[in-house]
Design a binder for these strands. Structure first.
Lengths: 101, 101
DNA sequence: AGAGACCGGTCTGCAATACAGACTTGCCTC
DNA sequence: GAGGCAAGTCTGTATTGCAGACCGGTCTCT
């Protein structure tokens, strides 16, 4: 195996950011999640949540689905295959360096 | 237990930064480590390493020991009790949110 | 009809900070 | 004493997380 210390420095910083890690973690277990709900669960501000979601979308880690509930816009997020893989890899790398048990 | 997602957002960012996590991880298992050695293990530049070490020192997470080898100054790092606790708590919080394993 | 409250989203401004590289000081060798 | 090297500090830059203001559009209440 590679040097576990070096592995720490190679962590995917897109995933490593707590706000985005929270988003991905929610999506990984919840399938599809509405914007508003995500906002409440993560306690992120709208601007901040949108900014992180956009970054994750750009990276291909999540899909943004735009729909309407009646005439009100409704935005939902869904994790992609790539996102799931990135998250799994992230945990793997982290575990490789965890000497605590 | 508290909401694991919220826990992610309360991670100690001093520990969360990969460079510092690497430093603390090395120190947690190695006792006392010289500056040069740490530089090699972590692949951080001198400037960067010094900056991170200073932050950890300010937080009370590590001790900086200045000595001389012959007439050459020698700096070593050692993790403190607080640092060990912070690291342990960090892993705990992270594990609480890890749904993968 | 008008006021006020949601929803989703953009944009601006600010403060923090990771990082590299230049610089300093002091020692040794030729 | 010129040059090289090693340990360590300091400065400058570019990124980025974050909150809050603002906007278009819709709904509700009076």
């Amino acid at each position: 195996m590679k040097d576990p210390i070096r592995t720490l420095l190679e962590l995917d910083r897109l995933v490593h950011e707590p706000a985005r890690l929270a988003i991905l973690t929610v999506l990984a277990s919840a399938g599809s999640v509405e914007f508003k709900f995500m906002e409440q669960v993560t306690h992120l501000s709208k601007g901040n949540l949108n900014s992180h979601a956009t970054k994750l979308e750009t990276a291909g880690y999540l899909d943004v689905q735009k729909a309407f509930r009646g005439k009100v816009p409704l935005t939902s997020f869904r994790i992609t295959k790539q996102g799931r893989e990135a998250l799994a890899k992230y945990w793997e790398q982290l575990m490789a360096a965890n000497t605590n048990g």
